[in-house]
Write a protein that binds this DNA or RNA. Structure first.
Lengths: 237, 237
DNA sequence: GCCATGCTTCGACCACCGGCGAAATGTCCA
DNA sequence: TGGACATTTCGCCGGTGGTCGAAGCATGGC
C-alpha cells in the first residue's frame, strides 16, 4: 500500500530511463556546463549522427530535462533547471564508485582531488582555482585570452600565438566531477600546465595522475598574479 | 575533449539504467524506508514473480545499489548507502514535475505540504508529526499498537480491535515524498484520520487533498497526548 | 530423512529502443 | 529564387532486456 502510493506520487523510472541511455547521458553531461549547445554540436560531442541526436533531444524535451531556444537555423539546448543538474551530479557521485578500502587508497584519492592532470592539463581543486583566477583577473574572457592575459602568460613562458596554431580546440572549459566546476582545457590548458611543470611549480606525484604544488610554485603563482617580477630561483628551462 | 573526459571519469548511464526499469524502481523506493526487506516481499510489493524479482535484485546487487544480508532461508535486501537514497530522492523531485505557475498554485502546494490526505489517511508534515508522536510516546512500536496506544486511541474514538479485522494491512509505514519520512498508513491510519475529521480537529480544505488543523484540533491533540480529559466542545459524532 | 518454504537459475518468448541513411522541413544568404 | 546548411521526420533493422513457468538449490521444521 505504501509502495503503491509512492509509485503513484512519483514515477522515477521514466526520468531515469531518459538518463539511462549512454548517448543521452553524454548529451546531458555536455550540457552540465550550463551553456546552451546546438543540436549538431551535441551530436558531434556524443558521437552519433544528427538524426540520432535529434531523436534523443526530442525525448529529453518531452521529459522536461532540457529546454530549447530557437535562434535562426540553430536550436540551442540547455538543461531544464538546476534540479536536473543536481540529478546528474548525484548520479555521478554514486557512479564513481569509491572502492576505497585502505588508508593508502584514501590518501591517494585526496591527492587526486586536490590536484591532478586531466590528460595533459591541470584539474582538481587546483585546476579550478587557476581557471577562476584567470577569469576573474580578466586574463581569460569567453574562452579567449585577452591582451592582458597574453602578457601574463608570456611571463610564464607560454607563447599564446604559437599555441593558437595547434590543431585542437584552443581554450575550452573542461568540467571535472570532483569539483563540478570548469577548469582550463585544450591546447592552452596543456601549454600552461606544461609551463607550470617546467618551472617546477608543480611536480608529478607518486600516484599516476596526481601532481603537487611546490613551495616555489606557491610563491611563483602569487608573484605572477600580483604582477611582480618572478623570482630568480624559478628556473625557466 | 571535455566531454570525453567526463564520460571517462563517470558513467552515469549504467546506474540510471538500473533505476530506469519500473520494477526495479519500485523495489528501490520500497527500500527507501530504510528497513531491509526479504526478496519475496519485494516481489510482492513490486507486483512481479519471484523469478523476475530475483533477477532484478541480482542486477541491483551487481550495480552496488543494494546490499544483501542472508538470514536463515531469507535474504534481506536494503539500499547500499545513503548516496543511493539521495539519488532516489532527487530523482523523485524532478519526476514530480512542479507545473507551479500562479501564486494560487504555489499557495495550494504549500497547503498540501503542510497537511493532506494520502488516499484516506493523514500525510504531509502533519502526518509525519503525528506518526512521530505515536512512536516516541510508545503508543506504536514496530508497526503494532501497544496497550498504552490502544487506550490512547480509544479516547480518540478509534476501536483498535475492530480496525484489526479490516482486510488490509494494519499499520504500515507510508513514505511521502515531500517529507521523505514515514507516516501512519493502512487501516489504522485511515481510522485515526477518520476520527480526527469527525472530531472536527481537521477539516477538508478547498484544495482537493488538503486538510487543515483547526483550533479545536490543536487543543484536542495537545490534551490527547498530555493524557488530559478531552474538552467537552469536541463533538464525538 | 522427508517435506515445506524461500530464493535462484534456466530456457524461451516478445516487445521496445537505439542506430543509421534518405528524404522532408526550415532558415539564412546571395 | 536557388543553393547551402541545420535540424527533424521517416522507415527499417538488429540487439538488448524484461517477463514468466518450471526446475534446481538451499535452509528449517518435523
Amino acid at each position: 500500500m505504501a509502495a503503491e502510493h509512492i509509485a503513484h506520487d512519483s514515477d522515477i523510472a521514466p526520468v531515469a530511463a531518459l538518463i539511462a541511455d549512454p548517448t543521452r547521458a553524454a548529451i546531458l553531461t555536455a550540457l552540465l556546463g550550463g551553456r546552451a549547445l546546438a543540436a549538431g554540436e551535441l551530436a558531434r560531442l556524443s558521437g552519433v549522427s544528427a538524426a540520432t541526436a535529434s531523436a534523443h533531444l526530442s525525448r529529453l524535451l518531452d521529459g522536461r530535462l532540457v529546454d530549447v531556444v530557437r535562434q535562426g537555423r540553430h536550436r540551442y539546448y540547455r538543461l531544464a533547471g538546476h534540479e536536473v543538474a543536481e540529478v546528474l551530479e548525484v548520479l555521478a557521485r554514486v557512479s564513481t564508485r569509491p572502492p576505497i578500502r585502505s588508508l593508502r587508497q584514501s590518501r591517494q584519492a585526496r591527492l587526486l582531488e586536490e590536484a591532478r592532470t586531466c590528460y595533459d592539463h591541470l584539474a582538481g581543486r587546483a585546476g579550478v582555482a587557476l581557471f577562476d583566477q584567470l577569469v576573474q583577473g580578466g586574463f581569460l574572457v569567453n574562452q579567449e585570452v585577452t591582451d592582458k592575459g597574453e602578457r601574463l602568460l608570456a611571463r610564464l613562458g607560454v607563447d599564446v600565438a604559437g599555441v593558437r596554431k595547434a590543431r585542437r580546440r584552443f581554450a575550452p572549459e573542461c568540467l571535472d566531477w570532483t569539483e563540478r566546476r570548469a577548469h582550463l582545457g585544450g591546447a592552452l590548458g596543456a601549454a600552461v600546465t606544461g609551463a607550470l611543470l617546467e618551472h617546477g611549480w608543480y611536480r608529478q606525484g607518486a600516484v599516476p595522475r596526481a601532481v603537487m604544488l611546490t613551495d616555489e610554485g606557491r610563491e611563483g603563482l602569487a608573484a605572477l598574479f600580483a604582477g611582480k617580477e618572478l623570482t630568480s630561483h624559478t628556473p625557466v628551462t
